[in-house]
């Protein structure tokens, strides 16, 4: 086995570990919803190739107001769905769309575009 072959194998191993760590094991940044004067937990989410922020922490039993603004025309992200709360909204490009609901159960709930290419997580505490 030549040196270059060994280097390629080691490189492959390192890349594999990096990919697994980066996508699965590294901790993700969480955004805690701010409570507004009206008592609702408000978060503004930008939609462009993904949801920013994509991990949102909210409290149970208090209304959540998520304002989505989509900054791309790709049809993939034209809808956002919260299947666990039976909520969905059409996001016309450049328009602010507000989704409001009260999470009545605690846990981690995904939200996503219609075909699941863009994903986020709503953590209800």
């Amino acid at each position: 086995m030549t040196t270059s072959q060994i280097i390629v194998i080691l490189g492959g191993l390192a890349l594999t570990i990096f990919i697994a760590w980066y996508f699965w094991f590294a901790p993700k940044a969480q955004t805690r919803a701010a409570v507004s004067e009206s008592g609702a937990q408000e978060v503004a989410v930008t939609v462009k190739g993904g949801y920013t922020p994509d991990v949102i922490v909210v409290q149970k039993g208090r209304p959540v107001r998520l304002t989505f603004t989509r900054h791309e025309s790709s049809a993939c992200s034209e809808k956002v769905l919260f299947p666990d709360f039976n909520q969905n909204a059409l996001l016309p490009e450049g328009e602010q769309v507000t989704l409001e609901f009260t999470p009545d159960k605690a846990g981690e709930f995904g939200f996503q575009c219609q075909m699941g290419m863009l994903r986020g997580k709503l953590i209800v505490e």
């Binding site: 462009k48 993904g50 949801y51 920013t52 994509d54 290419m117």
Partner: peptide
């Protein structure tokens, strides 16, 4: 742009 955005979120998709 999609790949970069999702990479920032530590996720990956078709892009």
């Amino acid at each position: 742009t999609g790949a970069w955005a999702s990479l920032k979120h530590r996720s990956a998709n078709m892009n």
